[in-house]
Simulated scan of single mutants.
Amino acid sequence: MLTGSIVALVTPMDKTGEIDFHALKALVEFHIKSGTSAIVAVGTTGESATLNVDDHVKVVMKTVEFADGRIDVIAGNGANSTAEAIIFSKLFANSGIVAGLNVTPYYNKPTQEGLYQHFKKIAESSDLAQILYNVPGRTAVDMLPETVARLAKIKNIIGIKEATGDLNRLHEIKALVADDFLLFSGDDETGCDFMLQGGDGVISVTTNIAPVQMSKMCEFALAGKTEQAQEIHQQLMPVHQNLFVESNPIPVKWACVELGLIPSADCRLPLTILAQAQHSIVRDALTKAKLLS
């Protein structure tokens, strides 16, 4: 079962915007050695919205290759077009990934019925396990608990990444779905409480730069060891809060460079490198979290 600290992995790139597969391999090894439970390849943090289909598939498949069965890989396979999401779902079926992560369609603002039909069609297109992903702050559409409950009845829809940061959502969804439906936080700032209140894990941006600490925090939280979990969580709070001073993944990529994890903080346009004015904010957060001396 997928639980604990799951990294929403950055996609390393060089200054021309080309994928740095050597750096990607090093990141996969880093997370295996650090105790991360699973990797999400090409989610929001992996720049799914700026990679073309070929690069998207290459990054996912290379991540699976580098993981070599030692860590579970989840593939971002959502899109604002149902047809495009189905293409990804079919491509990733029988590829070695354990599930697809499906973001709510962005920009076109579907109704709740539209959301239901969208995810139902994707789930029916292959046998690949699917995890729903609700992040209204990025997509401008909020999938309500009642819609999640309808979708949870489809056999290969196995869970949700709930990124509203509203802990009430956890309890609302939990009351409507079966006990084996997986509930992941998509918000690092509230992820610890999410698990302490019954969630199964966190799909995390912070885990990119603090995998050992996040793994241990999740272990404590899932075991109900509130004091130990909260101690680590509070230590990491400066980075939870300041990795979003600009749009994700801009700050976390810069932090990865600062910690020597990747050689370049470059993103694909329209994303840019972290502005000079924000450097001290992120560096100070890394120092306060004891990730940088």
Rank of each mutant, 00 (worst) to 15 (best):
2 L>C: 12
2 L>S: 07
2 L>T: 13
3 T>K: 05
3 T>F: 11
4 G>T: 01
15 K>Q: 14
16 T>Y: 08
17 G>P: 03
17 G>I: 02
19 I>W: 12
22 H>G: 11
22 H>A: 12
25 K>V: 01
25 K>P: 00
25 K>E: 02
27 L>T: 01
28 V>H: 00
32 I>N: 00
34 S>Y: 03
36 T>F: 00
41 A>E: 02
41 A>H: 05
50 T>S: 09
54 D>V: 10
59 V>E: 13
70 R>C: 02
72 D>R: 03
80 N>G: 14
81 S>H: 08
82 T>K: 15
83 A>P: 09
85 A>C: 03
87 I>M: 08
88 F>A: 11
90 K>H: 04
91 L>G: 03
93 A>I: 13
93 A>H: 12
97 I>Y: 10
99 A>G: 15
100 G>W: 04
102 N>A: 11
104 T>C: 06
111 T>K: 07
113 E>R: 09
115 L>S: 12
119 F>L: 10
120 K>C: 12
123 A>W: 04
124 E>T: 15
127 D>G: 12
128 L>A: 08
129 A>K: 13
130 Q>A: 13
137 G>E: 04
138 R>C: 10
143 M>I: 15
145 P>W: 06
145 P>M: 10
148 V>S: 05
149 A>K: 05
150 R>G: 15
152 A>K: 01
154 I>E: 09
158 I>N: 11
160 I>P: 01
163 A>Y: 02
163 A>V: 06
164 T>F: 08
167 L>P: 05
170 L>M: 08
171 H>M: 11
172 E>M: 06
173 I>Y: 11
175 A>L: 06
188 D>M: 06
191 G>D: 00
191 G>W: 00
196 L>Q: 02
202 V>M: 08
205 V>D: 00
206 T>Y: 09
213 Q>H: 13
214 M>W: 01
217 M>H: 05
223 A>C: 06
229 A>Y: 09
233 H>P: 05
242 N>R: 03
242 N>F: 08
247 S>I: 08
248 N>T: 14
250 I>M: 02
250 I>N: 04
257 V>G: 09
264 S>R: 06
267 C>R: 09
272 T>C: 06
273 I>Q: 12
278 Q>V: 09
280 S>V: 11
283 R>Y: 15
285 A>K: 05
290 K>C: 12
292 L>V: 10
